[in-house]
Simulated assay, not measured.
Amino acid sequence: MAKLMKATVLEPKHPNKATALFNGEASGILHWDNVAYPHFYDLRKTIRGLFWTANEVNMVADTKQFASLSNEERTAFLKIIGLLATLDGPQTDIASKIAAYSTDPSVKSILATIADQESEHNHSYTYVLASVTNYDNQIASFNEGRTDEVLLERNKRIAAVYNEFAENPTIETVLKAMVYSALLEGLFFYSGFAFFYNLARNQKMVGTSTMISYINRDELHHGRFISELFRATLAENPEYNNEQFIEWVYDEFRHSVEQETKWSRYVLAGIDGIDLDDMEGYVKYRANKMLRMLGLSEIYEGYEKNPMKWIRAYTDNFNGTKSDFFEQKSRQYTKTSDLNGFDDL
């Protein structure tokens, strides 16, 4: 198993264009017109164009509305924020760890941007909770990933794969980490996203939903880059493009769909407006989509189209660039200069 070596920071005797994504040679000087994968530049430009910050979102209306949510909605809100924080926190670290072993400076550059955006996602969950509930509930929500049995079971394999790469960096473990990163970006968030979009279509917690839509758009583009990086790494290391490894990928997708479905039936039970069978179909649809992005075949026959048609207004119409905050008139909010807009209360 090919052990990964940490890339040197600057080595003038090596060429500027990296000889390989991992375990190659590169000077460390990044010249975007002379990189091994020129289309990475377009991906970088798109990802860089997504910049936003949590405290630009006015949460005044959400602050007033949270107490009027049903008990089921408030419980799901806090549990799902806990889930999202559990997933986004490690994404900052895993992007940095993959970057540390990549010998391609273009990859390092893009992953640095992704790590920064994931950090802002995690900050946004603190921001949302600080806007709508007390400190004790915030602590409890962020502890969900450490204490909730369903969530612990759901995240067991994520932790195993990420920690294996951290402790034993090889071509195989970095490929596996990319698979799980793609799963996080393109599948694991989506029952949570659906919950907030369902609130928004009922004119509830619109500020939170709008922030979630920006996170969602970021994740779609992060997932696209990770998928491209996976395919390129597999092409450079064809010995891993074998039946055993590809079957591992399919098994992890099947397991992830099972866990996401179990989680959605647990956390979304009793939420008006979300059909749990449709939610399961949507998860399978997302899995097929992510497999295609990774260059693999679909495994869920009959789930080629999105069965949750109402969610398209929130997830299927993202373009490649960041729109102005004021463009989304159906979920419009205003920027505030003070934290959370509390001075407007």
Rank of each mutant, 00 (worst) to 15 (best):
R48N: 12
D277R: 08
F40R: 04
A85I: 01
H222C: 07
N137A: 13
G223A: 08
L291P: 00
N71Q: 15
N317K: 10
I226M: 06
R154F: 10
H123D: 03
S70D: 03
A20G: 09
K156D: 11
W263N: 01
V161F: 02
A36H: 04
L78E: 06
G145W: 01
H222M: 08
G24D: 06
R157L: 13
L50H: 05
L229R: 04
A76L: 05
T126V: 03
G28L: 04
V257F: 03
S337F: 13
L111W: 06
N340S: 14
L184S: 01
T19E: 09
Y37Q: 10
K6P: 07
R74A: 08
Q65L: 07
A232N: 08
D278V: 13
S119A: 15
I94E: 00
T315R: 09
N168H: 12
M59I: 02
E164C: 06
V206I: 14
E258V: 09
V161M: 07
S227D: 02
Y250C: 07
S27Q: 07
P307F: 09
R74F: 04
V161N: 03
E185A: 01
S141N: 06
A2W: 04
E11F: 06
D116C: 12
D277T: 15
Y303R: 06
R265Q: 15
S209W: 04
S323M: 12
L84M: 14
K289N: 11
F225S: 02
G82H: 00
L234S: 05
K6M: 14
P90E: 08
H221D: 04
T53M: 15
M59L: 13
S297L: 08
H222R: 10
E228A: 14
K176S: 15
I299W: 08
H39T: 11
Y303E: 02
F196S: 01
T170Y: 05
V35H: 01
Y285E: 04
F40W: 15
S337H: 07
T46W: 00
F189Q: 01
R312K: 13
E280S: 15
A166Y: 10
I226Q: 06
V150T: 11
S70Q: 08
E120G: 05
S191T: 10
R224N: 13
E327R: 11
A166T: 10
L220H: 07
K17Q: 15
T170A: 05
A99I: 10
V107I: 14
